[in-house]
Each structure stands twice: as structure tokens, then as C-alpha cells.
Design a protein around this nucleic acid. Structure first.
Lengths: 134, 134
DNA sequence: GACTATTGTACACATACATTGTACATTTGT
DNA sequence: ACAAATGTACAATGTATGTGTACAATAGTC
């Protein structure tokens, strides 16, 4: 019946709402679930669904537009566009490395076993890169 | 000659300084490189090394103390203590899952290949769990 | 034992960030 | 031409982050 809830954000997670929106949309975009040409919901609509202000959604959209995923136009809405593949730079690599270490260390501190962490990682890799180019 | 630089924080990385300190110390603690009984540098000393205010370091120490890694006492300093293994709860699992997805999606968006990401992950797992209990 | 240095803590302040309220600009549809 | 829909701009507010400064507790020294 109802639409599948596109996104779900967790207030009180410490992570800013607009960052959660960016992160989840980016994951969908990377996984190819939002192909070029697709229209995203209007900022006001998504804002209501998520329980935040429309400017918060707008900020998220703008960040994704900066990153090359979306085209934003007044009165027309947000559209997914074709995006050129990026060449990773050193900055991106070290930043990823640092954050991954922090995240996994936190998981270990919380008691997650190496096996549980590895399993989670595998499941995610399949999810994100399933049906995409190798 | 000089001591190995224990930590290195990156201002302008977006991540708050005190969080970077917490994350890096936590990684060392998880990896067993700071065994119980070890003394951490005084907040003012570490603050100078890192180029931040000593209250910023103090905040990081307090967070790790809350987490059960350190004992803090006025005049005596910060000491690593024996810490009971945690049982992971659902909250920790879903939080880890969400953040991992966000992080890996970001890496993919930046152009890192699945192989590069997996490789980074392997190296990290070895680093964090090397010589620790299975 | 008194004094001083060392060390973590408390608290007020400044600045930046995140979110919201409100109004505006642009496009679409009738 | 008009109204509705949609993204944008900007001020206001609350929270987080970092700092300056003073305080409290412990350790070292004579």
C-alpha cells in the first residue's frame, strides 16, 4: 500500500539530520537505486516524511548537488543526473582510512566481535556494489 | 631520539578535535597498545603536542573514562585500567551498521574501488585485532 | 609538616554549527 | 494572467565546540 519509506533518520543519534539525509541518499545513489533522470521528492514533502524542516532537506540536496549527483532548479525540483566517475585522491584515501579505524575501534569497544564486524562489512559490500560495474 | 608522536589530529577535518583524540586513543586501547597500568600524558602536555587547549584533551579523557578505559584523579593523572568486556546491544549493532554504510558509500562516491576498500578493511582488522584474543 | 609544582575539574565566555520561521524567486500548469 | 509548486535566502534561536582562567586535590621537596 503506502510507499516504502525512502529514508529514516534518527534524531538524537548525534549525527546532524541533514548529514543523515545526505549519507542515506548517497548510499542509494552509489548503489544505483536512484538512476539518472529520477526525481527526488520536493524538499517540503521529504521534510514532512522525516519530521524536519524543509530547509534541512534543502541543505542536504545542495550538498549532493555540489557532489555532482543532483541538479536543483527552482520550481522544477531535484533530479538525479549522470555523474562522472571520480578519481580518488590521497585526501579521500587517508580520510576514509582514519574514519574506518575510528568506527571499527568503536565497534570493538562496544563488544562486537571481529567476525560480526567482518560479516556486516560483507553484507554491505554486496548491497552497495551489487549489480554495479566491477 | 624524539618520542613517537602518540597522536595526530587534523584541524579542519570537520571532526571535532576532542572526538579525534577519543577515537585514536580508543583504537590504541582496543589494540592493546595501552595496557592497564599505563599512564597517559597529562592533559596540558598532550594539549601542547596536539596544538589544542588542555580542556579539549580533558574532555576526551573524560569520555574515555566514562567508557571504562581510564581512571582520572586530580593531581595523579590518567591511568589505563582493566576493562570488562562489553556485551554488544542492538543499539550498538544498528549504529555501527548505519555508520559503516555511510562511510563506505562516501568512499565509493570518492572513487575508491571495492577492492581498495576491502583491502583497507583487512589491513585495519589485522592492526586492531593482532595479538588479541579471538 | 609547610610549600610548591603538577594534574584534573569547573565555569564563564566566544564562536561556529544545526535547525527553524518566514519571505522571496523561478518554473509549471490551468 | 494567475495560482500553485518548488528551491533559495536570510535572520533568529538553540546547541556544540573550543578557549581563558581560576580552583581542588595529589605528589614531591625541604
Amino acid at each position: 500500500m503506502g510507499e516504502a519509506p525512502i529514508l529514516r533518520i534518527d534524531l538524537g543519534s548525534g549525527v546532524p539530520a541533514y548529514e543523515q539525509i545526505v549519507a542515506q541518499l548517497r548510499a542509494l545513489l552509489v548503489a544505483g537505486k536512484l538512476p539518472a533522470g529520477e526525481r527526488l521528492p520536493p524538499v517540503r514533502q521529504l521534510a514532512i516524511d522525516l519530521g524536519v524542516h524543509h530547509n534541512t532537506v534543502a541543505l542536504a540536496y545542495r550538498e549532493l548537488a555540489e557532489e555532482g549527483w543532483l541538479e536543483l532548479r527552482r520550481g522544477r525540483g531535484a533530479t538525479v543526473v549522470e555523474r562522472r566517475e571520480r578519481r580518488p585522491d590521497a585526501q579521500a584515501r587517508t580520510e576514509f582510512s582514519r574514519r574506518l579505524e575510528a568506527l571499527v575501534a568503536k565497534a570493538a569497544a562496544d563488544g562486537l566481535s571481529p567476525e560480526a564486524v567482518a560479516k556486516e562489512f560483507d553484507a554491505l559490500a554486496r548491497k552497495l556494489w551489487k549489480g554495479k560495474k566491477r
